[in-house]
């Protein structure tokens, strides 16, 4: 396709994000590419590997203790997206540090580690341990805080909905992360996402990732009940692209903090729209599930178009 004349960003060139230089501006989103270990032997005619040109793989969210996740079914496809209720199934922080992170480093996967915790202050010790375990790792670039989980210590309300709590989470992590990028992934399920971005900015993030999934529900007409056992799920895919663009625009205009755009990107044109609004990088999520090369193809396409 013909790329617009305003487009001149080198998405596969290193760029500075806070204290860290990351290798590129097209990333995979948390939860849609596991830990970045599953696709190293995959081949395609038009792309050398699923990791080619990627700026980062944001890992599946790691929690302090391993989680079995939610009962099945966990996914519902809709005409233009999908609902998920995976329940943060993951290997747990110890196993992640012992086995996953060293393998990512050995494979040279540019990594941003997604973390969730049970209280705002718990992020500090997790980040400290991560920092100690990954000392000297060249390919570990930062941390993304998944704030869309309940705050057990404060009645189970999501961290992510309260600016004050977002600030506490960010401050706790920032204190232990002087030399890597720190991102907070913001929920769109609030009245004013800009307040969350401002709180994250003032507490010291290098960027916010926007947006996390949109709360959604679908009904199985055969039973008259929601498809998902937990009723609600996180809505993602092409349907949420305009929502994500709106939230990113609000943050760019109203908070003045770097934004990593995420939500509904499936094609290079989708990513361009985030960059047009001022996003410093983008993440490809749901599209990665049907095509392990989705993000790499977008990076390749945008890389070619900026250089032509």
């Amino acid at each position: 396709m013909t790329w617009p004349s305003w487009w001149n960003l080198e998405v596969t060139a290193p760029f500075q994000l806070g204290p860290r230089e990351l290798p590129g501006r097209v990333w995979t989103a948390s939860g849609c590419f596991a830990y970045g270990l599953h696709a190293h032997e995959f081949t395609a005619a038009d792309c050398p590997t699923p990791y080619a040109g990627l700026g980062a793989v944001v890992t599946k969210t790691v929690t302090p203790v391993s989680r079995a996740g939610n009962p099945m079914p966990r996914l519902v496809e809709t005409p233009c997206g999908a609902l998920n209720s995976i329940g943060l199934e993951n290997v747990g922080f110890d196993a992640f540090l012992d086995t996953v992170l060293p393998e990512l480093e050995a494979l040279g996967v540019p990594t941003v580690v997604s973390l969730a915790a049970t209280s705002p202050e718990a992020f500090g010790p997790m980040v400290r341990r991560l920092h100690e375990a990954a000392k000297g790792f060249a390919h570990w670039h930062g941390v993304e805080l998944n704030l869309s989980c309940p705050n057990v210590a404060e009645g189970g309300h999501d961290f992510g909905g309260s600016p004050a709590t977002v600030a506490r989470c960010v401050a706790a992590a920032r204190a232990e992360l002087p030399d890597r990028a720190l991102l907070a992934k913001l929920t769109p399920n609030v009245a004013d996402i800009v307040q969350l971005a401002v709180a994250a900015r003032d507490a010291g993030v290098d960027a916010v990732s926007a947006i996390n999934t949109v709360v959604g529900l679908d009904v199985d007409l055969r039973t008259g009940r929601p498809y998902l056992p937990r009723r609600f799920g996180g809505y993602s895919g092409p349907a949420i692209l305009p929502i994500a663009l709106a939230k990113v625009d609000q943050i760019v205009q109203g908070a003045g903090v770097p934004v990593v755009g995420v939500g509904g990107i499936a094609a290079p044109e989708d990513a361009l729209k985030f960059f047009a609004l001022g996003a410093v990088a983008v993440q490809v999520g749901t599209a990665q599930m049907r095509d392990p090369f989705a993000a790499a193809r977008i990076a390749r396409a945008l890389g070619q178009c900026s250089s032509s």
């Binding site: 969210t61 209720s85 997604s114 869309s148 989980c149 309940p150 992934k185 937990r230 996180g234």
Partner: peptide, 8 residues
């Protein structure tokens, strides 16, 4: 379990 929205 089950109460997490956000990243799957």
């Amino acid at each position: 379990p089950g109460s997490c929205g956000g990243a799957p």
